[in-house]
């Protein structure tokens, strides 16, 4: 049997575990709303902008996180605007921004000399989470949790039906911005662990997986929190055990769960349909 105690005697593993679980939970909560509002691509766009900002930040010797957080938050508002504005095609605009940010980042990195950090930012590294990063993780987690619980009913209403919420005096724009802001924070911090190219999986997978079998909003939220924690933990253990990249292992565990949940969902739908026909 695999020895957990040995795995977590390394302080970097413990930091990766705690930080990863907190970020996964944030991503799962926000992800349900983003996926249902058809905003999943915003998460992907933001992670690329985050990469560009991190690369420029480290090339210019700024503190990478403190430099990229405000930039990603600004882009989050911008991307949200684009998606709300029906005149510009949102998905195309996000793809333009993603690839441009990636290109700027890579160019900045190569001009400043080859930087090993870049590889870590693209694919993530469990070694990269410093003690101060962990503190930021914990703060972001607490903020996301409090705001999510406090505004749970508003977030539901805005996610389900913006026009109705607006007509009833809910300031929809503020809640959309709140979700975008929290998503931006979660992504910038999660990028270090999961990598630019894989961080949006934390947002999308748990939501899609839980929606396959859960039929109520509350159970979808709870189930995707569970799925995200299980996925991250299992991914990290596999990564340690088999020396596979951590981010990729987490995504593969999520993919496996997605397949299992789809099979379960399909079978239970068929059983229900049969029962219905017998009645």
């Amino acid at each position: 049997m695999f020895n957990f105690a040995e795995m977590f005697q390394y302080s970097f593993m413990l930091r990766a575990l705690i930080g990863g679980i907190l970020i996964s939970l944030c991503a799962a909560l926000l992800g349900v709303s983003l996926v249902l509002k058809r905003y999943s691509m915003i998460g992907d766009g933001l992670s690329h902008v985050g990469f560009g900002a991190l690369a420029i930040g480290s090339a210019a010797n700024f503190s990478p996180l403190e430099f990229s957080i405000p930039i990603v938050i600004l882009s989050a508002f911008f991307l949200l605007r684009i998606s709300e504005n029906s005149k510009i095609k949102g998905d195309a605009a996000i793809a333009l921004i993603s690839t441009s940010a990636l290109a700027i980042g890579i160019t900045a990195a190569s001009l400043s000399g080859v930087n090993t950090d870049i590889d870590n930012y693209l694919f993530g590294s469990i070694l990269s989470l410093s003690r101060s990063d962990l503190v930021i993780c914990i703060i972001v987690f607490i903020v996301v949790m409090i705001l999510f619980i406090l505004f749970y009913n508003k977030i539901f209403a805005v996610t389900f039906d913006e026009s109705f919420a607006k007509a009833n005096g809910t300031r929809v724009g503020i809640y959309n911005m709140l979700i975008a802001l929290l998503t931006a924070l979660t992504i910038v911090i999660g990028m270090k662990l999961m990598g630019t190219l894989l961080i949006s999986s934390l947002i999308i997978f748990p939501a899609i997986i839980s929606m396959r079998i859960c039929r109520r909003f509350k159970t979808v939220i709870i189930m995707s929190s569970i799925v995200s924690v299980v996925g991250f933990f299992a991914g990290l253990v596999i990564s340690y055990n088999r020396s596979t990249p951590a981010g990729a292992s987490v995504v593969l565990v999520n993919l496996a769960m997605l397949i299992v949940f789809y099979v379960i969902g399909t079978v239970s739908d068929k059983i229900k349909a049969k029962k219905f026909l017998k009645q």
Partner: peptide
């Protein structure tokens, strides 16, 4: 994915 009760209750917002 929302229950009927969740949807109707959101009218009270």
């Amino acid at each position: 994915p929302a229950s009927v009760f969740e949807v109707v209750l959101s009218g009270r917002l």
